[in-house]
Design a binder for these strands. Structure first.
Length: 654
RNA sequence: GCCCCUGUAGCUCAAUUGGAUAGAGCAUCGGCCUUCUAAGCCGAGGGUUGCAGGUUCGAGUCCUGCCGGGGGUACCA
């Protein structure tokens, strides 16, 4: 059981009647930043004093006077401008820790006010190879689901698969023109992936070639304009002009890079005899692919049959990745699920006067937005905004959630602004609609990973590489053990899998989700610092102690042996263990798993310090040994639970 | 043009949402393995939190203006 809720209750009693926003004031009670200010601190006296026009220290003194915390803390101290510093009594800590020993939830209470959450995450486009960019949504969404569930909320996870888009037009076209039958029989997934890449490449070629002259022209024009502006500006341009010039320069450089890249791509195709023949034979491929897609959407029998044939293979492919990532969904209702609800959605919005026709398209115009949200194109086709609206309607009817979370990268924020505003107009007012946005996955060059080029690193290759590197490290570590290796070779592979996948997921979860994520093998697979490996290592070291000491853990827990917090390292560890509940509350409130990873890192650090300073099996007395074993057990269980809530496994040995 | 995000140690990132002396990891330097896993621990150096104002007991965090980076911006998702 954590400490903060109890402190808050006591302060509530002391504050009631003296302020009208007691809850806000209670939120200002938190852990102290520095041990010399105690374990917890209450920071509300300053603002309360301000409002009542009285010296904050006096206010603090008065609150302390009325405060009854003698059983929890030593006498509170007032410091600085009016901080109330609290140091928790050891016997209180011990009582809480002892209660956690026999509690399967480690003292974390279920929420008294459970909500229903729909969490929308992962959502890859099937039939396109999954790549590194899909990890973030998948991993963050999964962690949020796990945390919310653990806290007692009802969570419905839904993978809004892209299973109805142009990519199917592409593989249908590829199937009809380029199929290698025996390869398809042997491995449909692989052959479909090949077809996708091939068609993508041919389309890119034609698109690129048609754009080439325009782009060349643009570059020339930009260069001219820049030259002219430079001359006009003279040798000492003013600030504004200088800025404009700089922008033009960087824009020109970008355009030149783009042009060079395009030329390279075109040349590569021309250099390949087979490709250049295919390119020539399929000059209308772009339009043809769109036509195949349109036929599918119109219900064309053959295309529908092919779609039904391809889909399971595509799903098997992504399911394999989900299996390795240990990610599951309650529902996988993709775009195709909603396709027969789209027309009604648009009609409904028009009927209610929310949407109207403009330039041939059906649009929702929103207050304060200079561009409308399009829900039907002038050619009659629907857009992803349409699907998203139909999805909201369906989810409201089916699940009646209190909140829908969209774990989607931040570039789509405008779309969600539109979407949510429209949902409000549709009458969905009492629901939290939340874009849980995250930064873009960037390459080493600092530019976004491209989904289009077929030759980006596939997600699965990435997993393999992570596991391979982890395997090398596990082996080296085991070989270096003083008492000789303890892990048989066949177990090493499984440990490597767990360590490698964990490193990958944790690297993503431990970063503040709002910042961009620079993908790098080395960073992801670094085994030091705030990483899954460090946590798994701390866990494995605890388990090793129990093995070496032949400790019967169940008996230990049931023994009722007293916990002793004699040394600073033990006390610090105990205090840290009790923070889990507070941290989960915090993490869930902003949908930020990195709050939890930061906590686990602190906990593992505290444990390492304890591990160095406090012999467990060779403790001075039997009682101390029991106490320390209990602390070890609590630490291991807390780490294990924390990692579990992040979707990460522990290992017994490493 | 307009809108959104962003700027923190050499590098990669934190900072409990306005709290006390801005913290980690990597890299650098110096100590710790005859003792429960050294993937570890202890210590050192490294900062005008882009710049300038403002708000107040108190600002990396809030407001204004500049400078820089990214993203979005009517028929892709």
């Amino acid at each position: 059981m954590s400490i903060l809720p109890d402190l808050k209750e006591r302060f509530r009693d002391a504050l009631t009647g003296r302020a009208d926003d007691v809850d806000e004031l209670l939120d200002l009670i938190r852990r102290s930043g520095d041990p010399k200010f105690g374990d917890y601190q209450a920071n509300f006296a300053m603002s309360l004093g301000k409002r009542t026009g009285r010296p904050p220290r006096e206010v603090a003194a008065e609150v302390v006077e009325r405060l009854d915390v003698a059983d929890i803390c030593r006498p509170p101290e007032i410091a600085g401008p009016g901080f109330i510093n609290l140091r928790i009594r050891d016997d209180w800590l011990i009582a809480r820790l002892s209660a956690a020993v026999t509690d399967s939830r480690l003292g974390v209470r279920q929420t008294p006010r459970p909500r229903t959450y729909v969490v929308d995450y992962s959502a890859p486009n099937v039939a396109k190879p999954m790549h590194v960019g899909h990890i973030r949504s998948t991993v963050i969404g999964d962690a949020l689901c796990r945390m919310l569930r653990f806290l007692g909320h009802k969570v419905i996870s839904d993978n809004h698969l892209g299973d109805w888009g142009t990519q199917f037009g592409m593989i249908i076209y590829g199937y009809k023109h380029f199929l290698d039958r025996s390869a398809y029989r042997a491995s449909p997934v692989q052959e479909l992936a090949r077809l996708y890449k091939l068609v993508r490449r041919l389309m890119d070629y034609h698109e690129g070639r048609s754009q080439f002259p325009k782009l060349t022209e643009q570059v020339a024009q930009q260069a001219d304009a820049l030259q002219r502006n430079r001359e006009e500006a003279g040798p000492r341009p003013d600030k504004k002009t200088a800025q404009t010039l700089r922008r033009q320069e960087s824009s020109l450089a970008e355009a030149r890079d783009e042009l060079a890249e395009l030329r390279q791509k075109l040349d590569a195709v021309k250099a390949d005899p087979l490709l250049s023949r295919q390119v020539a034979e399929h000059s209308g491929i772009g339009a043809a692919v769109l036509a195949e897609t349109a036929r599918l959407h119109e219900g064309d029998e053959e295309n529908l049959r092919l779609w039904r044939e391809f889909l399971p293979a595509c799903e098997d492919e992504i399911d394999r990745v989900y299996g390795r990532l240990n990610v599951t969904f309650d529902h996988t209702l993709g775009e195709s699920f909603y396709q027969n609800r789209l027309a009604a959605t648009v009609d409904g919005l028009v009927h209610e006067g929310i949407a109207r026709e403009s330039d041939g398209a059906i649009c929702v115009f929103l207050d304060g937005q200079d561009v409308p949200m399009l829900i039907r194109k002038k050619d009659g086709a629907f857009l992803y905004a349409t699907t998203d609206l139909a999805t909201i309607r369906f989810r409201m009817e089916q699940f009646a959630p209190d909140a829908i979370l969209y774990v989607v990268d931040h570039r789509q924020s405008l779309h969600f602004e539109h979407l949510f505003a429209t949902a409000r107009l549709m009458g969905y007012k009492d629901i939290e609609l939340q874009h849980v946005s995250f930064g873009t996955v960037l390459g080493d060059d600092g530019r976004p990973f491209k989904t289009r080029s077929g030759d980006t690193v596939g997600l699965e290759g990435l997993l393999d590489e992570a596991v391979r590197r982890a395997g090398a490290i596990v082996a080296a570590n085991d070989d270096a053990k003083l008492d000789g290796p303890e892990i048989p070779p066949e177990q090493r592979a499984e440990i490597a899998e767990r360590v490698g996948i964990a490193a990958l997921k944790y690297a993503d979860l431990s970063q503040n989700r709002t910042s961009d994520y620079v993908f790098s093998y080395d960073k992801m697979l670094a085994m030091n610092g705030n990483t899954a490996t460090y946590m798994q290592y701390a866990y494995a070291r605890v388990r090793s102690i129990f093995r070496k000491g032949n400790v019967d853990i169940e008996a230990l827990r049931a023994s009722g042996a007293p916990i002793v917090l004699g040394s600073p390292a033990e006390r610090a560890l105990g205090l840290e263990i009790l923070r889990l509940a507070d941290v989960l509350e915090l993490a869930v409130c902003d949908y930020r798993p990195n709050q939890l990873t930061a906590y686990l890192f602190d906990l593992a650090n505290r444990y390492s310090a304890f591990f160095e300073q406090c012999p467990v099996l060779k403790a001075e007395t039997g009682q101390l040994r029991q106490s320390r074993l209990l602390l070890c057990d609590l630490t291991a269980r807390t780490i294990c639970k924390g990692l579990e809530l992040l979707g990460i496994d522990v290992v017994e040995k490493m």
